[in-house]
């Protein structure tokens, strides 16, 4: 068990190190002369207007909710898909009922206009 999952952490660390190394090299050889103009926020040459950390309307809020429902559903589907052959027709029908309810949910959201980009 330890051997199987330790590789994930080792790879995460290796990936991070692989990114840090060029940062360090570049820090050593690249020129550094920052100025106020240079380090100001880029806005196509204009002086930036205000901060970007504002509250703005995230339009896909309802999409995110539907996504959450479907993502959880998919987790249920994975073990079912693997064992489908041994589950037989009954397992197939049961999952189809589950899927049909979800598909109905999608149709309902669609009809309610939740899938429109407002």
């Amino acid at each position: 068990m330890f051997n199987i999952y330790s590789s994930i952490f080792i790879f995460a660390a290796l990936g991070a190190v692989f990114v840090v190394a060029p940062f360090v090299i570049s820090w050593l050889i690249a020129p550094r002369n920052p100025s106020q103009r240079k380090s100001s926020t880029y806005e196509c040459g204009e002086a930036p207007v205000g901060s970007a950390w504002i509250q703005y309307n995230v339009r896909y809020y309802i999409f995110a909710l539907i996504f959450l429902i479907f993502d959880v559903e998919v987790i249920f589907l994975f073990p079912w898909a693997v064992t489908l052959r041994s589950l037989g027709v009954l397992g197939l029908i049961e999952m189809f009922i589950f899927l049909a309810i979800l598909a109905l949910g999608l149709v309902y959201a669609w009809k309610k206009g939740a899938l429109e980009w407002l």
Binding site: P22, S26, W27, A30, P31, P34, Q36, S39, S40, T41
Partner: peptide, 10 residues
């Protein structure tokens, strides 16, 4: 690698 890294002030 040899380019200047500009970190935005904000």
């Amino acid at each position: 690698l040899a380019k200047e890294n500009i970190t935005p002030a904000n």
